[in-house]
């Protein structure tokens, strides 16, 4: 079943070739049809297209460079306006500056609540 010789295959292909040649179009017919279309097919605008493509590429690269530089400038601005963490204040910090704050504050260490009273009494006596 598998032992088809090369000669037999050649014979079969030869029959196929003979059949194909009966339907073969004339060479002159195809050649003459192709010949008038050849100058148009030569594509004289190909270099122009190449130039346009190159110009578009350059424009794209320039646009990329400009956008990148703008982006980095904006980034720098943002960085300079950011306050340092030690300077940061709560937005409600102003509300805590009440006059009674000093009175409510705890006394300092090694001091007495009578310090103020005794000092003013001694001062008035000396006066």
């Amino acid at each position: 079943m598998n032992d088809m010789s090369d000669d037999e295959l050649r014979t079969r292909f030869s029959a196929l070739r003979n059949q194909d040649r009966r339907h073969e179009p004339q060479f002159s017919e195809l050649w003459n049809r192709a010949e008038p279309a050849a100058p148009a097919a030569a594509r004289p605008y190909a270099p122009t297209f190449r130039w346009i493509a190159a110009a578009a590429g350059i424009a794209l690269a320039a646009a990329l460079v400009v956008s990148k530089s703008r982006e980095s400038r904006n980034h720098q601005l943002i960085v300079t306006t950011v306050p340092s963490i030690s300077d940061w204040q709560s937005p409600t910090a102003g509300l805590l500056q009440a006059p009674s704050r000093d009175l409510l504050a705890p006394p300092s260490l090694l001091s007495s609540v009578f310090d103020g009273v005794t000092q003013t009494a001694v001062q008035s006596k000396t006066d």
Binding site: L30, A37, A38, P39, A41
Partner: peptide
Amino acid sequence: QTAYLRIISGR
């Protein structure tokens, strides 16, 4: 025909 055209046109 297209192949001949490519050859004639130099493509």
